[in-house]
Amino acid sequence: MNPTRIEKRFTELRARGEKGFVAYITAGDPDLDATVERVRLLEELGADVVELGIPFSDPLADGIANQRAAERALSGGATLDGILRAVERIREFSEIPLVFFSYLNPLFARGFDKAADLAAAAGVDGMLLVDMCLEESEPFQNILKSRGLDHVVLVTPTTPEARVEGLVSKGSGFVYCVSRAGVTGEQSELQRDAREVLERTGRHTDLPRALGFGVSTPEQAAAYAAMCEAVVVGSFLVNTFHEAGNSPAGLKAASSKIKPLIQAVKGI
């Protein structure tokens, strides 16, 4: 099978000796035009991968920033079809790798195989399924694989070494390493858990490791980047975009806050 956009991007980064920046935003927050413009901006600023959160009414793994973003997206009328159309619009101007970050139910409701078909056709490169555990993953895994979609798996501080091997063997694209126990959200200090999660993961895979949860300053971003192959920033971007609004001036203000984080990662 041909390498996916995600694989290609990480191969390029590795060749350049550069760290990756993975950005998360909630699709449809507050509308899909904003999503397209934010992806455009993130790419211009140097992001390597964008995770598009599929809004869900009951996001139990998310902290308050992403919960509110999902509420805004749903009240703004975001649907799976609308998000797919936004992806097609992004593909008119960009080859940036795109990952659907989703709870199972919004995809399951469509029929997971159908949802995967549509996502692949629109130009999505991979999926991260928040509430799908390894033990339940086989049918979903097979569907992703047959559509050429990467399957981004998570390794967390509570994942024992014995599970890591099974998890990463199912994964492709990159591995999302969760730096601390808890839900998504910004936080002020780095946790020692992060290094352990990265080491545990690295012992079982050569896939790039993207470390995330709680990154909100350039210092944190740089410290994370020094330990692994990529850094994921989510809630900080969601909050920054939300506070700045969607006017050209707002986007400019947001970009001046986001740029230092990306530069910090790229400077390592």
Binding site: L134, L154, R163
Partner: peptide, 12 residues
Amino acid sequence: GGMFVPEILVHP
């Protein structure tokens, strides 16, 4: 039934 939870909860 089953166990459809984020990875962080699986081991616990």
